[in-house]
Every structure is written in C-alpha cells, then in structure tokens.
C-alpha cells in the first residue's frame, strides 16, 4: 500500500506516493534523487546518512519516509547558499577534514546541529558530539579541526547555548 508524503527538502516542496516501509534515506536518494546522503551500515551506527529534520540532526536510516510528513528536511545539497559553501563545508575543505569523502556529508550535518546547540564547543565536546558518526580515513584529527575552524568562522553568531548534547541520536 502506498502513502502520500509531503515534505520540504532543501526549501523545495516535494510530494510522492511511497511504500510505508520505505526508509527516509532511500526516499531521499532514490525518489527525490539527492545522492549526497550516504549509507554506510544497516544498524544506525555510522551516521553517513545524517540529515537535519526540522533543524535537528537525524540518521535518515532510522526514519520511514512517511514519518517525514510535513517536516522540513535539509540534506548536504542544501547547505551551500547562493554558490557559497557553508562555513562547515569550507572548513572541511580548508582543514583537510576528508579523504574519501563518503562519511563527510553525515559529519557536516551532525556538526551543523552540534554548532547550532553549542556554538563554541571544546575539543572534547566536539569529539563526544560526533561520536555517532564514523570515519575510517582521517583518524578524526582534521574533522575535529574543521569543526573548530567552522565554529570560529561562524563566530557564535547563532549563539543559543544549551550546553553539550548528543547530536546524532536517531529519529524519534
């Protein structure tokens, strides 16, 4: 049985008929055609599929597409604005925060939410805040540096300090 699902993805309204069991990550990749969100495991450990759902970081393999009804979704493709990379994207580039690049979209989305919650995180808070995402290439050294650099660029502009919070817990 198919269900209608209406979402806003990166600012664009989307409407599709989908199977009830379709995972949100497959919806984004295979139905909407946004392949920047990746899949790295079957068990919600790796975080490669992290996106923002109504501003909150969610592993999109932990939600069904139909659960996204009426939600505002942001994927990696929605981060750059007017041809300018998001400060996190720029920082990952500047600080060599990626090698193969496969985990990178998930890290950037998780980090975006981390900085939203805690604009000036300590190194330890970044490491703990990103523990729901796995990278196999970088040893995390330059990922941490990238998030620190982005925090600096963003200058705490969105300061809304709520203290440390785990950011990559899956869908609710």
């Amino acid at each position: 049985m198919k269900h209608k699902v209406s979402t806003t993805v990166n600012g664009t309204r989307r409407e599709h008929e989908v199977e009830s069991r379709l995972l949100l990550v497959h919806y984004l990749r295979d139905v909407v055609g946004l392949t920047g969100t990746h899949i790295g495991c079957d068990t919600s450990q790796c975080g490669a599929c992290t996106i923002l759902v109504d501003g909150k970081a969610v592993k999109s393999c932990t939600m069904f597409a139909v659960q996204a009804e009426g939600k505002n979704l942001t994927t990696i493709e929605g981060m750059a604005k007017d041809g300018e990379l998001h400060p996190l994207q720029q920082a990952f580039w500047d600080e060599h925060g990626l090698q193969c690049g496969y985990c990178t979209p998930g890290f950037i989305m998780a980090a975006a939410y981390l900085l939203e919650q805690n604009p000036n995180p300590t190194e330890d808070e970044i490491r703990r805040g990103l523990e729901g995402n796995l990278c196999r290439c970088t040893g995390y050294v330059n990922i941490v540096k990238s998030v620190q650099a982005a925090a600096k660029t963003m200058g705490g502009a969105r300061a809304k300090p709520t203290g440390h919070q785990a950011v990559t817990a899956g869908g609710e």
Partner: peptide
Amino acid sequence: IHRREDPRLVSGEGRYVDD
C-alpha cells in the same frame, strides 16, 4: 595545495557507485 576533489565531496556532489 588544498584538494581540488573536495568541493564536490563536501557538497554531496561526489559520485560513488550507488549514485
């Protein structure tokens, strides 16, 4: 030199086999 492959990879424009 900063990597020229990165702009596409940080933008979700990388092309892996499943894409």
